[in-house]
Design a protein around this nucleic acid. Sequence first.
DNA 1: TATATTTGCGAGCTATCACTCGCATTGTCT
DNA 2: AGACAATGCGAGTGATAGCTCGCAAATATA
Lengths: 210, 210
Amino acid sequence: MARAVPTNPRKSASQKRSQVTVEALLDATARVLTKVGYDRASTNRIAATAGVSVGSLYQYFPNKEALVAALVARHNREMLALLSDALKEVASLDLATAIAKLVRAAVDAHRVDPALHRVFDEQVPRMGQLAKIEALQGETYRLVKSYLEKRRNEISVRDLDSATSILVTTVEALTHQFVIHRPEAPDRDRDRFIDEVTRLVVGYLMPVRR
Amino acid sequence: MARAVPTNPRKSASQKRSQVTVEALLDATARVLTKVGYDRASTNRIAATAGVSVGSLYQYFPNKEALVAALVARHNREMLALLSDALKEVASLDLATAIAKLVRAAVDAHRVDPALHRVFDEQVPRMGQLAKIEALQGETYRLVKSYLEKRRNEISVRDLDSATSILVTTVEALTHQFVIHRPEAPDRDRDRFIDEVTRLVVGYLMPVRR
DNA sequence: TATATTTGCGAGCTATCACTCGCATTGTCT
DNA sequence: AGACAATGCGAGTGATAGCTCGCAAATATA
């Protein structure tokens, strides 16, 4: 319980065996987090779930926070890859269609493991090591902004930076809210939701002189 | 540390003296939370900060979670009152102006105690007792929806319910993000931000045939 | 004033947590 | 095979957390 001082990384796994251990620990962390929540997810419990000793856990992660941070980082990298793919698939479409597809991609991405997503959102404290992880969110920002830049002539906003940050925040919040509060929503409702978000975004990016 | 079973409320304060104690505890909770964060905010620490014994704390709050829940509830009631006032002040304005004023009110509300707000947002786990608190958020939803209903003829959205939920989520997320990431933003930037959010919202509620 | 009730106290109990360390096992290199 | 390094182990340690309980002080009631 006593963890006042910030911690440094440990040795990184070099042999295959240890890499398996690390993966097992991350997987176990995800399972334990979704099963019992952040507070009750102790390092002992996670190690046991992973079929690994606590000692091994601390060989690769200096503390619980670093462990969770690594899991979040892995998760974020996956999400980022999905976004990147979606942006490529959408490169040649007109903006309105593209936005619709992107929003759908966001919703689908969040539906992969909603329980884990929910824990990240509702329980994992975003501080310390975890705060650094948000820097990885900056990559999302960059990807979206560079996409908007390519479509600059179809878009009429004062400032691409604020537009990007507004869009990323908005779509993320709405997607979270939808997936968390209506995890079993039928396809029709999901389509409706995507439609509404698309209208919101397109209306913002391509306003019509009134 | 051992708190497996959910807990019931304790006796509520009847004499003035005890009400003072309860208030002191809530105030201390806010101070401790913003100072050391959720994890390190122990009940002993909170009681000491309040100038009250742990025993007294547990006379009114069955556990730490209930204590924090009570604080969040108090905070939410204050926020709700601000929203309610803002809606009244805006009743007779045209929609676009009204939205702008409402967004400004939201930003101002979050600027009252940004540190506390941040703790609520980033650290306080939204589960158990805290989940019930979100039901109080339903009141926000109801207020906004009834406002939109009064303006139904100026608005063109398919469904007022989804529109309400989208607007509440969006404005809240954007406001949070702005206040947390730019707590010291100059007035000009704040005005800009309010402008953008207003454009986003108005563009959604009053789309122009394209 | 005498009695009953409410409120306040805080040392201390138990549970649990994060984390260590000396030793055993497995893998690599020559 | 032999030597050295990498990895795995898990009982044990110290610290701290949440929470209780017996008693004292303050307030209400008669």
